[in-house]
């Protein structure tokens, strides 16, 4: 690790101020990706602004038909939350699939989606559930939030404060784990709200994306059999020693089908 300055922000405003003053500073949320990256000397920030001391960034609230999860809420908290299990059980399941228990005790939803690792789980949940990302400056629809590999719509000095999830009628998440890293080789989040079906795929592409073919098939008929014949094009999908693009394309269909089954 290169050395850096460290400060503990007391409020979001405090953090935003520190972040906007230094383009090379980084916000430190759970640190489950940032710290390993620093250890490998793959990043050289001038300063880390620690968000862990901002109490009002953590917590889960029900807001009418919505579930609002504070940016600094740990994965473990989401996974065992009675509210999440009651409103969107698939989201609790997704949180339980992330990393391992010690990682889930530190990692946060805000950190995960701000990082937008192409193999992370939360982006699939946020996009699949048509959530709204709330920042200190504005509200961003999920469809506009994830812009590319490790890229989001967040601007300098913009800090995620919470994510608001509308309650779907049904939802399911199915993850095919990389056997070594346990990140998603393919993760598929399926959600049905009224006649609207969304299918968000993580792990397979440069970033999370919606699988339109699967969405239209499931809009017509929300049954596992509706997707099993659909062949996803491998073009542009990730290919590495663990899974070729062709295999990932195949897994998207299989995981989608199983996610529909999981919807119950």
């Amino acid at each position: 690790m290169y050395n850096f300055e460290y400060s503990r922000a007391k409020s979001v405003a405090d953090a935003a101020k520190a972040a906007s003053g230094d383009a090379e500073a980084k916000l430190l949320a759970g640190g489950m990706t940032l710290i390993p990256t620093l250890k490998q000397r793959l990043a050289k920030p001038t300063a880390l602004i620690d968000l862990n001391g901002i109490a009002d960034l953590a917590g889960i609230k029900r807001d009418g038909n919505n579930l609002v999860i504070g940016a600094m809420t740990r994965h473990a908290e989401v996974a065992r939350s009675k509210d999440v299990k009651a409103v969107i059980p698939a989201l609790a399941h997704l949180a339980e699939m992330i990393g391992d228990p010690a990682v889930r005790n530190r990692g946060t939803i805000g950190g995960s989606i701000a990082n937008h690792d192409p193999a992370a789980d939360y982006p699939a949940g946020v996009l699949g559930l048509n959530a709204t990302v709330i920042t200190n400056k504005r509200q961003i629809k999920a469809d506009d939030f994830f812009t590319g590999m490790f890229a989001t719509a967040l601007q300098d000095g913009e800090i995620i404060t919470a994510v608001s999830f509308p309650k779907p009628d049904k939802a399911g998440y199915m993850k095919f784990k990389n056997p070594a890293s346990r990140y998603a080789i393919v993760g598929v989040f399926v959600a049905k709200t009224g006649n609207d079906v969304r299918v968000a795929v993580t792990g397979a592409g440069a970033g999370v994306f919606r699988a339109k073919d699967l969405e239209s098939a499931l809009t017509k008929s929300f049954l596992p059999t509706a997707v099993e014949g659909i062949k996803i094009a491998a073009d542009g999908l990730n290919s590495d020693i663990h899974a070729s693009a062709e295999y990932r394309a195949h897994l998207i269909t299989v995981m989608a089908k199983r996610a529909v089954v999981a919807c119950g």
Partner: peptide
């Protein structure tokens, strides 16, 4: 009171 990986947290964060 919760298990964490002490290789993935800064000492200064543990104040």
């Amino acid at each position: 009171g919760t298990s964490i990986k002490s290789c993935t947290i800064l000492a200064v964060q543990c104040e």
